[in-house]
Write a protein that binds this DNA or RNA. Structure first.
Length: 422
DNA sequence: TCTGGGGTCCTATGCCGA
DNA sequence: TCTGTCGGCATAGGACCC
């Protein structure tokens, strides 16, 4: 048995915890670079504003309805997420953190009534963090997701919906009412294709023959069908596996033309990616760099290039990775374009212990280099990202992302601590 | 002016050698 | 020796998730 616990409108709710005046008002949180609305309060959803709507396209409506927009404050959200997850861990030893704002709990080892447990979880999280959560409980993950959807949509559930507590008639009705697009694993493309085949609701999909679904669609959708029928196919992953690839990319706050500025950005992204790499104690066997113009500016000349290079030896060393990345950049950079985004990807990740040495390569003393990286990580952890960095990362980052309405880091910066009673 | 970032998994495809 | 087939593998690209 699984519970899916999901924070309602997570980023918006985090902002509201520290600014209660936002309660009841239409609030959005924007993506990096203040691009699109990625979290919407219920008031905003009621205005019909879609997920990922570009902010510049909703400016007018926003002004009309007094929508308050925040830049993403990941330091705040990550910290609040950690608090929620550690509270949830108290309720079940089996926990899979699925994303920043949701997790699955395994309930098999828990004897008590599941809905009651759900209610207690909800109240505890609300009381200890100020964040509202909804909970879906079911024998498969896909059904738990579906129940979570119901718990959010219908207030009569009071935030907790358990599949087994719905009578047969209700289950039937739900299946006939909910459209396939709401199902976990069915996105926009698949919805269109399924609709063409006469499959519109959850009930339709459940009735379909799993073998046929596998042939015509994929093994993934076949599993979804089985899970909707109550047969678990997707296990709880309570130990998070190491990442197989690490990506760091950003859209620029303003267009970039020079190779020099691109090199600063790429260098900055490599450093960030390499930090993540070392945190999971991996080394990368290959690295890719990409740069591109803004595809939305259709009148501008477009250019987009992505090149992957194998490394002569797997590495977790920022200096070495930076050297390789800048070498790639030199080969893909073409002058005369307005670049909007760049990124670095680390691939072929493997444990950084026992890396096969290279007979003919001369390299820096690996122990010294490891110490250097470790020291940089330590300093940057303590004093803030980028405190210590390579000169190639530059100083005047004209390309830095826009964050025009960033809230304080209420919980992670001493200077930003909220003051009570003022 | 202004359209996110970071992942995973699956499938199709083409190449290689047996 | 030539040709066809098949499995394994690498790769690119698409779809999906939040």
């Amino acid at each position: 048995m699984f519970a899916l616990v999901d924070v309602n409108n997570f980023y918006v709710s985090c902002q509201r915890v520290f600014e209660p005046r936002l309660e009841g008002k239409p609030v959005v949180v924007l993506s990096n670079n203040d691009g699109c609305a990625v979290s919407r309060s219920n008031e905003v959803k009621a205005l019909g504003i879609a997920m990922a709507k570009p902010w510049h396209q909703m400016r007018e409506v926003a002004e009309q309805h007094g929508i308050i927009a925040y830049s993403s404050n990941y330091a705040l959200y990550a910290d609040m997420s950690n608090r929620v997850m550690s509270i949830l861990r108290r309720f079940s030893p089996d926990q899979e953190i699925y994303s920043i704002d949701e997790c699955f709990l395994g309930l098999d080892a828990i004897g008590r009534d599941h809905t009651e447990l759900g209610m207690e979880i909800r109240q505890t999280v609300q009381k200890w963090t100020g964040l509202p959560v909804c909970i879906g409980i079911a024998p498969t993950k896909t059904l738990a997701k579906l129940c979570n959807h119901l718990a959010k949509k219908h207030s009569r559930f009071a935030g907790v919906c358990e599949w087994a507590k719905l009578d047969q008639a209700t289950q039937q009705r739900v299946m006939q009412e909910v459209t396939i697009g709401e199902i976990w694993g069915v996105g926009r493309r698949l919805s269109v294709k399924l609709n063409e085949d006469g499959i519109f609701t959850v009930a339709d999909l459940m009735k379909a023959d799993p073998e046929t679904i596998r042939m015509r669609y994929s093994v993934v959708l076949q599993r979804t069908v089985m899970e909707l029928r109550g047969q678990p196919c997707i296990d709880l992953e309570d130990v998070a596996p190491d990442k197989q690839q690490i990506l760091c990319s950003r859209s620029f706050g303003q267009l970039v033309y020079s190779e020099h500025e691109l090199a600063e950005a790429v260098s900055t992204y490599v450093a960030r990616a390499a930090e993540k790499l070392r945190r999971q104690q991996s080394a990368a066997g290959a690295l890719a760099v990409f740069i591109r113009t803004n595809p939305n500016r259709e009148k501008d000349p477009q250019y987009s290039k992505h090149v992957l290079v194998p490394l002569s030896q797997p590495s977790d060393d920022t200096l070495q990775l930076t050297k390789a990345a800048l070498w790639v950049l030199k080969r893909i950079y073409k002058p005369g374009y307005a670049y909007a985004k760049a990124g670095v990807m680390l691939l072929e990740l493997q444990p950084n212990t026992g890396i096969q040495g290279h007979l003919f390569l001369e390299s820096a003393d690996p122990i010294k280099r490891a110490n250097l990286n470790e020291t940089m990580d330590k300093i940057n952890r303590q004093w803030g990202r980028g405190t210590l960095r390579l000169a190639s990362a530059g100083f005047n980052h004209g390309w830095k992302m826009r964050q025009n309405n960033l809230s304080p880091c209420w919980t992670t910066k001493w200077a930003d601590l909220p003051v009570a009673g003022g």
